[in-house]
Design a protein around this nucleic acid. Structure first.
Length: 442
DNA sequence: CAGCAGGGGGCGT
DNA sequence: CGCCCCCTGCTGG
């Protein structure tokens, strides 16, 4: 169509469809994903953009989460629902059994998924789900009902208030606070408060009373974690006893490895060994890797899981390069209404003490491993995430640490720095030399 | 033989 | 604090 002034208006006929398709494809390939949703032990690498577009809740969360690649642990929501909601958000459509509809809607309300959860309106009907196109509603995203949501619920701690309960307390009951929209509103309001009222004030948050901040560190923590302060607090509560001990600072860099995948193409020759990395062949390597990691008895299951330990899922917020946050194995009590929990990984202790060995204050969020060295935790976490930031310049091999890569590179360079003192033999690795000596010069 | 995971020392910022 | 490097124990092909 030509405009009167000679300007041409070029339209992409099926732009929306194509755009959405591409987005969906990107998710499948885990390309450019910058946030991971964790639910019932499963991990879903997705895009902040999409989540923010379809959910004001996520929008707020990300707004307060500086991390490059946060991990949002969703509690009280079934992974099936998350999958369905993701399908809805990415594809605009989702099929759901009638019997599961109520539950799905509830989850959508918790997460404030546009089109599925309409605060002021009655729960959507099925047809809504099918037709609603996330994108279509996004425009009003700001308008929807900010105020409404904003309704303050200072009552952060609900009767269940088990937030104070020990980690072991099984408040996992998924229903605890999802039951009503209010609960949703509640959480929402909290986050908004934080954002609008200022993060610092969180400390004074009503919830606070229940929480015992034993050390200044915690405050620091708060400052660092603008997001859902209430959540953090609760976490703190439970973990408070181990302020120094259980808190950990760890970071996961999903960056290249997980989301990017560009370079991840490599490793194929290494076979399945590296498949967990981001091989195109394994669209969800991260999931698998992490799930595996979680499988362990003492692993994340306890943590994220189930309520045995954590009583519901907690949010591991921000295991990212940028943001380290604290993770408290003990998730918030059921008292909280937030669909997720933010868990910080920062070990504020570090600030207080620069010494490395003051006890193992860094805990791996995925397993029972702990270390007094944050850097070691960082590396360790890569074993769970599959992240291997160090690429071999000669082959697709990727390593989790520089040292490992350097060792590997010797296979290409033929360098054999380890010489036998008893003969001309040289080995590329110390182990090899030791074996040689034992075998030939014993 | 190659790689992985964990621990420790050292260094620069 | 983060990174690098080294060492050790272990595993799998």
């Amino acid at each position: 169509m030509m405009a009167s002034d000679g300007m041409l208006s070029l339209s992409w006929n099926n732009h929306k469809a194509t755009f959405c398709h591409i987005l969906s494809t990107l998710r499948e390939k885990e390309r450019y994903t910058d946030v991971t949703l964790a639910c019932e032990g499963k991990f879903y690498p997705v895009h902040k953009l999409v989540l923010s577009t379809c959910s004001e809740y996520f929008e707020n969360v990300f707004e307060h989460t500086p991390c490059k690649h946060p991990v949002v642990v969703l509690k009280d929501i079934k992974c099936a629902d998350i999958e369905a909601l993701l399908s809805y958000m990415y594809d605009g459509v989702v099929s759901v059994l009638q019997q599961d509809l109520a539950r799905l809607i509830k989850a959508a309300e918790l997460l404030q998924i546009k089109g599925l959860a309409v605060p002021d309106e009655p729960p959507l009907k099925e047809h809504n789900k099918k037709n609603a196109y996330p994108w279509s509603s996004r425009d009003d995203r700001s308008s929807p009902h900010p105020k409404r949501r904003r309704r303050e619920e200072t009552l952060t701690s609900t009767p269940q208030g088990s937030s104070v309960a020990p980690p072991e307390s099984p408040h996992s009951s998924p229903q605890h606070h999802q039951e009503s929209n209010q609960s949703w509103d509640h959480s929402k309001s909290l986050s908004q408060d934080q954002r609008e009222d200022g993060i610092e004030q969180r400390v004074g948050d009503p919830v606070e009373p229940a929480v015992e901040f034993s050390s200044p560190k915690q405050e620091a923590l708060h400052n660092q974690e603008p997001v859902d302060e209430s959540l953090v607090k609760e976490e703190v509560i439970e973990g408070s006893e181990e302020n120094e001990g259980e808190r950990m600072d760890s970071r996961i860099e999903y960056g290249e490895g997980l989301g990017g995948g560009d370079s991840s193409t490599g490793g194929e020759e290494h076979g399945s060994k590296y498949s967990h990395q981001l091989d195109a062949k394994h669209p969800q390597p991260l999931h698998e890797a992490v799930v595996e990691a979680l499988a362990g008895p003492s692993g994340m299951q306890g943590w994220l899981g189930t309520g045995e330990l954590g009583g519901g899922f907690s949010m591991l917020e921000g295991y990212s390069e940028d943001g380290s946050q604290e993770v408290h194995p003990a998730s918030t009590g059921p008292g909280t209404q937030q669909p997720h929990q933010m868990v910080g990984l920062n070990c504020d202790d570090s600030r207080l003490s620069r010494r490395r060995s003051i006890g193992k204050c860094h805990q791996c969020p995925f397993c029972s491993y702990s270390s007094d060295r944050k850097d070691h935790i960082t590396i360790h976490i890569r074993t769970h995430t599959g992240e291997k930031p160090f690429l071999c310049p000669h082959c697709p091999y990727r390593a989790g640490t520089r040292s490992v890569l350097n060792n590997h590179i010797r296979v290409h360079t033929g360098e054999k720095p380890y010489a036998c003192v008893l003969c001309p033999y040289r080995a590329s690795h110390r182990h090899v030399l030791q074996f040689h000596i034992l075998k030939h010069h014993k």
